[in-house]
Design a protein around this nucleic acid. Structure first.
Lengths: 341, 341
DNA sequence: ACAGTAGATGAAACCGGTTTCAAAGTATGG
DNA sequence: CCATACTTTGAAACCGGTTTCATCTACTGT
């Protein structure tokens, strides 16, 4: 960097020592107001900006957090959930003056190597991980780096790890109860067993059935992998058993399910009612617009950053208190509660 | 960091100086093979990892590049283009051992502040910017930081700035020509004038018309903002003028257009043929699947990283040579060239 | 008026690497 | 066999901040 202004230069101009400038910079006490003002003026006049890297080295803090998005293969950004959470985390980080670095596909070999190297290099103050697949657990890399880690979504096979999650059981329950309350009796589901969220939503479905005195019928339960194709296949598997209503555990799968219904010549909601989950943009665009369960993604992202920052600051007593955010039913046309437009 | 192994410790264990270890680490010459081996052995045994931050400070290189995604309001990650390019850039960065940091919404006030601070702090070696809106130009922040910058997509009002783009003129031309070749005569378009890509696609459309001796009819041209809603509105505006075929300048808008057609009781492609642009996942999921122009997004991302890295390394003679990647027509059902399934 | 203490300040060490430079060692050529 | 050049190596400076610690000043209470 050619001739950047350094703290030394500012100190000279203000006739004080580097230490004093540093104190002003960081708002520390023990500086006389007039000195503080003078230094501040010089800083403003020169447009001095502290050199991040140098600051990091000295303070052993980088103010950089990582967001690692798992996923095998191409699925990554196909589900709009990931972009949404990424955006939310990005904004959360900005609001706390943290820099966000992004790692896509940390589960494949190259991703692991990259991430491992970064972690060992001490660049990151903390790491957020999306727990979107079962089997994600504490990988050796970050166990060794002992860096603060927080999962977004509940990891399945790891205890003592902090996470921020939404209440997926409630999601499944809300959707299913709504359908039952509307009078449907053969209520099916297209769930997923790929991750904890999928399990939870099915649990909510089951809970609602039980509570309303309906029996669990294996043939009315299909499983998918959050892709539209799997929703399509799931619906085709359900059709022979004549469901009156279906809770689809993700909007993305619901789009596939819609297509299967259309191809089978069935109308939504007249012949089969549908409720999705997530309330991502495609839900509104669908034909008919999807009744769905809204996850507070923006809040999830912000909260994840806040909690991670908190863990980083605490450094010692890791506050193992996890957060589960509530979800909310959004009624549109696909469930039959509203008249079609 | 508690008790990390430092270069000093490695040097002691190997009975050499820090300088020598540094040479081994960076593969510099002037180290006797046996010394090199010994140092390497110690490094392996201890699992030593150089401290990134310290290295950065000393070498004035961070190996961190930024990706700034512009956009006002909520639009950001609604168009699957952004997630796709983000993923591509992320992988590109990983393949070059660069760390990627992400800045969403760099055009609003907070985003600008954040980015400005980071740039001035000298944390980033280079910056990639998505040129998705007209009016994005060289902001004072990075002009001052004089950091290497590369646009993804062609910026409209800036010269002498490097960019990587896809051949949008060709895209518009391919789509329109295809429709004309299929025998449609009233070929409309839903374009966009929000960015250079939009302009170019319309230019391609116009070029194809001219080349086939068809007249430009103002009433057959609508403009949108890449949202499904604007595609919907655009199609409604076109319908009174009875287009036989429409080139929609993005798949996302095409989805909206499809909905407008369905609501008008028109079948695709029997009544109106459609060609989209981008070939993002929704194109395949659409009903009917969209004929569209495929942009090589993965390659764009990788190329952008490569070029940025090149500019960073060159430091002096900025190679102002820009790249424009070719696009390709993908024929599916919405254009009527194939029989419906 | 004076001991005691709190506040303000600067010098210097430090963070963990890279890079320069001088010195020592080794090979080459006349 | 000696002058010359080239390779190998380590000591020390350096990158630009933060933090410790000692010193000096000013204020408190008696």
């Amino acid at each position: 960097m050619r001739n950047r202004i350094t703290i030394q230069r500012v100190a000279e101009l203000a006739n004080v020592s580097k230490a004093t400038v540093s104190r002003v910079l960081n708002g520390y006490p023990h500086v006389r107001p007039e000195v503080r003002d003078k230094v501040q003026r010089i800083i403003d006049e020169t447009g001095y900006q502290p050199h991040n890297i140098a600051r990091l080295l000295a303070s052993d803090r980088s103010s950089i957090i990582g967001l690692a998005i798992s996923s095998s293969a191409q699925v990554v950004f196909n589900d709009p959930y990931f972009p949404a959470i990424t955006e939310a985390v990005s904004k959360g980080a900005a609001s706390k003056s943290l820099v966000l670095s992004l790692f896509v596909s940390y589960t494949d070999q190259q991703g692991q190597d990259t991430l491992g190297r970064i972690l060992a290099g001490g660049l990151l103050d903390g790491l957020l991980l999306t727990a979107d697949y079962k089997g994600i657990s504490v990988l050796p890399q970050w166990r060794q780096a002992d860096i603060p880690v927080l999962f977004i979504g509940r990891p399945t096979n790891t205890v003592g790890i902090n996470y921020v999650d939404v209440d997926n059981v409630q999601g499944g329950w809300l959707a299913t109860s709504h359908l039952i309350d509307l009078g449907y009796e053969r209520v099916a589901t297209i769930g997923s067993n790929r991750n904890a969220a999928g399990d939870d939503r099915v649990t909510g479905y089951r809970k609602a059935l039980k509570q309303h005195g309906l029996a669990w019928d294996e043939r009315l339960v299909a499983f998918g992998d959050y892709s539209p194709e799997s929703g399509y296949a799931g619906m085709q598997a359900l059709l022979p058993y004549k469901p009156q209503a279906v809770f689809v555990a993700s909007d993305t799968m619901a789009l596939g399910a819609l297509r299967a219904l259309r191809e089978a010549g069935l109308r939504v909601p007249e012949d089969v009612a549908l409720v999705g989950h997530d309330d991502l943009p495609p839900a509104v665009q669908a034909d008919p617009p999807l009744t769905t369960v809204r996850q507070p993604i923006a809040r999830t992202g912000q909260l994840a950053v806040d909690k991670l920052a908190q863990i980083i600051d605490a450094s010692e007593g890791t506050p193992a208190e996890n957060s589960v955010l509530p979800v909310k039913l959004i009624v549109r046309e696909s469930c039959g509660a509203l008249p079609a437009k």
